[in-house]
Design a protein around this nucleic acid. Structure first.
Lengths: 180, 180
DNA sequence: TTATCCATGTAAGAAGTTACATGATTGA
DNA sequence: TCAATCATGTAACTTCTTACATGGATAA
């Protein structure tokens, strides 16, 4: 499963251009998977070569022609096959957590600022997700949105309750802090 | 921040070989960042070239010489600089969530199996983390371990409570199921 | 006797990101 | 007037993974 699968998936919700696919991806599950234009456009070209999507070019003035892609029957089959193959384990990469793990080497003010930023970020993300909720969404959409919300709330609560663990001991290692 | 930073960080906890660094990484934060031998060994070679780590070769019989790396003062400075630069946003890639989002195209039994597997996986991970807890750990270690635990518990609870949302409607899309 | 741990390293390739190139429209 | 939105695409590059190569010791 890769960006091509994502594109096929988004196209089950309706025909779309590369630009629109990217937007849909951001809305639907930016927190679980994301892709840049630099991967989406080549993916669509490749899918078209394989006959998994068809493309209608809509002339536009001032902008490049809008290319609206649609799933073909073969594309739908490929999507099913992709979804049926065992999913790879989740991959997470968090530089923030690395910073926390080694927070003893950072000035306390820096650790505090890092956590405050995070907290603000999660507050915002939670507000956004809450506002998107309950638009008579399909159940699987609600499932994914609610999942993201549950995780963000855990992040926020854990950070707020346990930040003292990293703040109290930051700036203790040699070579750090104002008194150097 | 990349694998080189991780290596420098692990070396603050004591001198270690590439092999040991990988093990330490797995124990400490495999859930937030991971690296393979194929990235660790070249990273260490590069760090040595830059003078950020030193290396002592310990002859061994039957195995390749064990190369024990140690942080140099320059290495410690680099680590501080790396930790001080603003962390990149967390990157998450979850094929499982993609499958859930498009679960309407999957047979119900498949969706159930996928979720059961996940649940088992989280149960195991939670048990492992719980057993590693409270070994008079440094506070920042406890923070990271507890963070992982909190997230895993949220995963488990959310899955158990809301699986019906994806199970009830799976297998409804055309071309799926036994009656094809 | 079979798998796992120990132990290092390389080479090929996958997969994706960033930056670049282009440029009209619209809202603040 | 400045930023964002719409709109596509390429090329260079980064970064990491996978598979390979090698092989003794130890535990089940």
């Amino acid at each position: 499963m890769d960006v091509k699968t994502l594109c096929l998936g988004v196209l089950t919700m309706g025909d779309a251009s590369g630009y629109e696919i990217k937007k849909a991806l951001e809305e639907c599950f930016s927190r679980f998977y994301d892709a840049s234009y630099g991967s989406i456009y080549p993916a669509l070209a490749h899918l078209q070569e394989e006959g998994l999507v068809s493309c209608a070019e809509m002339p536009q003035d001032g902008k490049p022609d809008k290319k609206v892609y649609a799933l073909t029957p073969a594309g739908r089959e490929r999507l099913l096959a992709d979804l049926l193959s065992p999913p790879a384990p989740d991959r997470i990469r968090s530089q923030f957590m690395v910073s926390m793990f080694f927070s003893e080497f950072l000035p306390r003010a820096r650790v505090r600022a890092l956590i405050d930023e995070r907290l603000a970020h999660y507050d915002e993300a939670i507000a956004t997700l809450e506002s998107h909720q309950d638009k008579s969404m399909a159940p699987s959409r609600r499932f994914v949105l609610g999942y993201g919300l549950a995780l963000y709330r855990t992040h926020r609560e854990y950070l707020a309750k346990h930040r003292h663990l990293v703040e109290a001991h930051s700036g203790e290692a040699a070579g750090v802090g104002a008194a150097e």
